[in-house]
Write a protein that binds this DNA or RNA. Structure first.
Lengths: 192, 192
DNA sequence: CGCCCCATGTAAGACGTTACATGATTGA
DNA sequence: TCAATCATGTAACGTCTTACATGGGGCG
């Protein structure tokens, strides 16, 4: 029941549908823009869209433009937009940090459009906190592994790579927060 | 038929089984060592082990030590070791670089133990080459996105994060190769 | 005696992959 | 007219998730 029963691909579709699009459009986005790591296969997209529609998160309407082929354009419903916002504004969990940050980055990429500046900032802070609390454990693993000397060079190098990537990400969260702090903000907001 | 029909979890099991272990041991590794991103659920591990055994890559033997509970210990067969080596020594593809580097890092972590120093070095060089050829495309996407200004701040920041992580990884491959170049090597090998 | 850890498994369901299938439209 | 692209879909299959089930052994 977690996540309202939506897969990562489902959320990716939901996030992209802040602009109305057809299944084919979405496939093109997944196949051409390198930003997207998701499958462009029709066997994933079309069933995914149908599920989202059955759950009431999106609504499709058949377009009958002159001479054009049948083409179904989907858009978010109010429920869908709310679910998207809820997903984005959830705090980052340690599990997400460990099991892969793709989901978090996806949330962040959509955050501004779907939930606003404050949501983006909140996500960054949440991610920063989780990274800060997780990194020491990794460092410990490294020193422990070196002490045992049971790990071959490639094993400890792989661990080193993981640590570096977390550190790079942590630095990125700081820079990203700085970007938001620098940017003018409309409406009254708390100062960073 | 790709990959000899072995999933990522399957290869993780195969790689760990260079040291004989029971299903429970493997679950412990997945649940306790932070290096492992894989599922420790019995519903994944035990069927996975059975598949590998049916394919002849591992062999299990029931341990009947005094007073001990029934406990099945698995070890690699010759075929399994060969398959593991083949998987590790495959060149890194662009697809792997795009769809996520977890598999590559897993291969690298096991490379030294299962396929030797030269295999580790080969993997690093292959990864380095793919990263070098992929990074320009990402930079292009960034400048293109900034020109359109269609991307919200959080979108372009997410892209920035991806670029940085690839750059960090590229730097890591260089450092890792330097480590291998520094290390003394036994047997006659080509100079780096 | 009761509880927790060891140790293994199964069953239902969800999801993605691969491959196949269909048909309309556009351009050479 | 032939191929490519637009556009949508289905079916089989493999694998993971979640949850449940079982039972021995050690410990307080």
């Amino acid at each position: 029941m977690k996540n309202a029963g939506i897969s990562r691909l489902g959320y990716a579709l939901l996030g992209l549908l802040t602009k109305p699009a057809s299944g084919y459009d979405l496939r093109k986005i997944f196949s051409t823009t390198a930003m997207m790591t998701y499958s462009d296969s029709p066997g994933a997209i079309y069933p995914g869209l149908r599920r989202l529609q059955q759950q009431g998160f999106i609504r499709g309407s058949i377009e009958n433009g002159a001479g054009l082929r049948r083409r179904q354009v989907f858009r978010l419903t109010a429920r869908g937009a709310a679910e998207l916002r809820a997903w984005i504004t959830r705090p980052v969990t340690q599990d997400e940090v460990i099991r892969g940050l793709d989901g978090v980055m996806l949330r962040f990429a959509f955050s501004e459009k779907a939930a606003g500046r404050q949501a983006s900032i909140g996500l960054l802070k949440s991610l920063q906190a989780e990274l800060t609390s997780y990194l020491p454990a990794l460092h410990e693993q490294r020193t422990a592994g070196m002490a045992m000397a049971a790990m071959p060079t490639s094993g400890s190098l792989a661990l080193e790579s993981g640590i570096r990537s977390y550190e790079t990400l942590l630095r990125w969260t700081k820079d990203a927060l700085a970007v938001y702090a620098r940017e003018p903000r409309r409406k009254k907001g708390k100062a960073s």
